[in-house]
Nucleic acid binder design. Structure first.
Length: 271
DNA sequence: CGAATAACCTGCTCGC
DNA sequence: TGCGAGCAGGTTATTC
């Protein structure tokens, strides 16, 4: 589910509700996530005070005065702020109990997410090492895409979804940015021109920023920390619209599979 | 090194 | 109605 805008939306909603709170208990209902949730986390987190909730790529970093948590929402995960009266749903796997009586629950039907201990100075974690630049940082631009793409024969869509190249761009926003930049998803990354990468980088920034502004994209199960949904779905131009007319030229949008993922595009607008 | 594939899961939709 | 096939927002591990 969640790409960068959905993770950032979650972070922004939850950070002020967590900052400074003491965790009274950490409850593991289902430890079988992407990797097993280590049992010792239950004891390590009980009594810890939350320092901050930050984000790197699609990971959330919950830092405390002790061991923290490294969270990933996978394909179907979401974090929700609840009261003890909020009915427990199927697939509510983890619960953080807070000292003000509220709770934060991780809900993840497909269990592709993770919850791992985050040692102090957590950015050196192996899962975070080797990640590319944040797309909304100024250091990410068309030039770095152009330079790193030379000689690569794989499709440009897989290239911009490679977290070592730039983080946070998943299937929805890669599809949208390629449409906005006028580049076909199946083009070899090494054959995309510098000018096209300049357009691509600026559209990646623009589409992610716009999606964050609208609270992310809710397709099926992504919900905000308060249970409401994101509004960016109505702004999607081509994702999930194969067979419909192109919003720019009215040509019928097509789809093909690239790297096991559906990729819709306009055969007229995208070269 | 880069690229393609399988694997990890549940749930929903579609076609027969 | 029932049932298998295929598909879904991500990432890692393995293989060539």
């Amino acid at each position: 589910m969640p790409e960068l805008p959905e993770v950032e939306t979650t972070r922004r909603g939850l950070a002020p509700l967590l900052a400074g709170r003491r965790i009274t208990a950490f409850e593991v209902r289902e430890p079988r996530l992407r990797w097993p949730v280590p049992p010792e986390l239950v004891q390590q987190l009980a009594g810890a005070r939350v320092r901050s909730l930050t984000r790197r790529a699609k990971y959330l970093l919950l830092e405390t005065d002790r061991t923290g948590l490294l969270l990933h929402l996978g394909m179907s995960g979401s974090l929700r702020h609840c009261t003890p009266e909020t009915p427990l749903r199927r697939h509510d796997h983890l619960t953080l109990h807070l000292d003000n009586g509220y709770q934060v629950r991780l809900h993840d039907p497909r269990r592709f997410g993770c919850c791992l201990p985050l040692p102090e100075g957590g950015l050196s974690h192996t899962l975070l090492a080797g990640l590319g630049p944040e797309p909304l940082d100024p250091e990410f631009d068309g030039d770095c895409l152009f330079r790193r793409s030379r000689g690569r024969r794989g499709p440009v869509k897989a290239f911009i979804m490679d977290q070592a190249i730039v983080v946070g761009v998943g299937n929805i926003y890669a599809t949208e940015a390629l449409f906005l930049a006028g580049v076909r998803p199946g083009r070899a990354a090494g054959r995309v021109t510098r000018a096209e990468y300049e357009r691509l980088a600026s559209h990646i920034k623009a589409v992610l920023a716009a999606a964050i502004k609208q609270g992310g994209t809710t397709l099926r199960d992504f919900l905000h920390e308060d249970g409401t949904h994101g509004y960016f779905r109505q702004s999607l131009r081509v994702y999930g619209r194969a067979g419909e007319p192109c919003p720019v030229c009215a040509e019928v949008l097509r789809t093909r599979r690239i790297g096991q993922r559906a990729s819709s595009y306009c055969p007229a607008c995208q070269k």
